[in-house]
Lab assay of single mutants.
Amino acid sequence: KKRTSIEVSVKGALESHFLKCPKPSAQEITSLADSLQLEKEVVRVWFCNRRQKEKR
């Protein structure tokens, strides 16, 4: 599967949402994915990776 490159504006939106809620529910992920026109899986993986980055 190809890597999904996420645009800067979209990254900003994800980042601000992450600061409010680092662990969104499935429903939040779905609505966020719909509003940003991304697949749910892409958003879910982005949050997983972002939480891991926070640990480092």
Results as ranks from 00 to 15, higher is better:
Q27T: 13
E7K: 10
L36N: 04
R3M: 13
V45R: 06
A26V: 11
S31C: 13
I29N: 00
L32C: 00
K20N: 07
Q27V: 11
N49F: 04
K11W: 11
V42K: 10
E54T: 04
F47Q: 00
S5E: 15
K40N: 13
E15F: 01
I6N: 10
H17D: 02
H17L: 06
K53N: 04
L32S: 01
L36F: 06
V42H: 14
V42Y: 14
Q27I: 09
L36A: 01
K55V: 10
R50H: 03
T30D: 14
I29C: 03
R3H: 12
Q52S: 09
V43N: 01
V45E: 11
L38W: 02
A26P: 07
F47Y: 06
S31P: 02
Q52N: 12
K2Q: 11
L14E: 02
P22S: 07
L19A: 11
E39V: 02
Q37F: 08
A26E: 11
S5F: 11
R50W: 01
L38T: 07
T4Q: 10
L38V: 09
R56Y: 05
S25N: 08
L38A: 03
E15H: 02
V42R: 05
V8Q: 14
A33K: 03
R50E: 05
R51T: 04
I29S: 01
E39M: 00
I6T: 10
R56S: 08
S31T: 13
T30E: 13
T30Y: 06
I6L: 14
R56Q: 09
W46S: 03
F47M: 05
L36K: 01
V45H: 14
H17G: 03
K55Q: 07
L14S: 01
V43T: 02
V45N: 12
V10D: 15
R50S: 03
E28G: 05
Q52D: 13
G12L: 15
K11L: 13
E28I: 04
S31W: 12
V8Y: 15
L19M: 13
G12I: 15
K2V: 09
G12K: 11
S5H: 14
Q37C: 14
R56L: 15
R50P: 00
V43Q: 01
E15W: 02
S5W: 06
L19C: 10
A13L: 11
V10F: 03
K2N: 05
S25A: 06
V8E: 14
K2E: 11
T4P: 10
V10G: 06
L32P: 00
S25Y: 02
K20W: 03
W46A: 01
E54Y: 06
L36S: 01
S25Q: 06
G12N: 09
S5P: 13
W46L: 01
K20C: 05
S25F: 01
E7L: 08
S9C: 09
W46V: 01
C48V: 12
Q27A: 09
L19F: 04
E15T: 02
P22K: 05
N49C: 09
P24E: 02
V43E: 00
S35N: 09
P22G: 04
D34M: 13
A26K: 08
L32W: 01
V10W: 08
N49S: 09
F18E: 00
E28H: 01
E39H: 13
R44H: 09
K2I: 07
C21H: 10
T4H: 05
P24G: 03
N49L: 09
E41L: 01
L14N: 03
C21W: 04
V10T: 14
E28T: 10
A26Q: 13
S9E: 14
G12C: 13
G12M: 14
V8W: 09
S31E: 14
S35D: 14
S31A: 11
E54C: 06
Q52H: 12
D34H: 15
A26G: 09
E15K: 02
V8H: 15
K1S: 06
R51N: 05
Q52A: 13
I29F: 02
E7M: 13
F18L: 02
K2G: 10
K40H: 15
R56D: 15
V45G: 11
Q37S: 12
L19T: 08
L19I: 10
T30F: 05
I6M: 11
R44W: 05
K40R: 13
D34Q: 15
L19P: 01
R44D: 13
F18H: 01
E7A: 11
V8M: 14
S16I: 05
E41F: 03
E39Y: 03
T30Q: 14
K53S: 15
P22N: 05
I29L: 10
V10Q: 09
S25V: 03
F47C: 01
R44S: 10
E15S: 00
S5D: 08
V8R: 14
V10P: 04
K40V: 13
S31I: 14
I6A: 11
K53W: 05
F18A: 01
V45Q: 14
Q27W: 06
P24M: 03
T30V: 12
Q27K: 12
E28W: 04
S16V: 07
Q52P: 00
A33F: 03
K55C: 06
Q52Y: 06
R51W: 10
E7Y: 05
E39C: 09
L32D: 00
K23S: 13
V8A: 15
V8I: 14
Q37N: 10
K11P: 06
K40G: 10
A33I: 00
S31G: 12
E54W: 03
V10A: 12
P24Y: 00
E39G: 06
D34P: 03
H17I: 06
Q27M: 05
D34E: 12
V43I: 08
V45P: 02
S35L: 11
L32K: 01
D34N: 15
Q37A: 11
R3N: 15
K53G: 10
E28P: 02
I29Y: 03
I29H: 02
L38E: 03
V8K: 12
V42D: 14
V43Y: 00
A13G: 05
K11S: 08
C48K: 15
F47A: 01
P22R: 05
P24V: 02
N49Y: 05
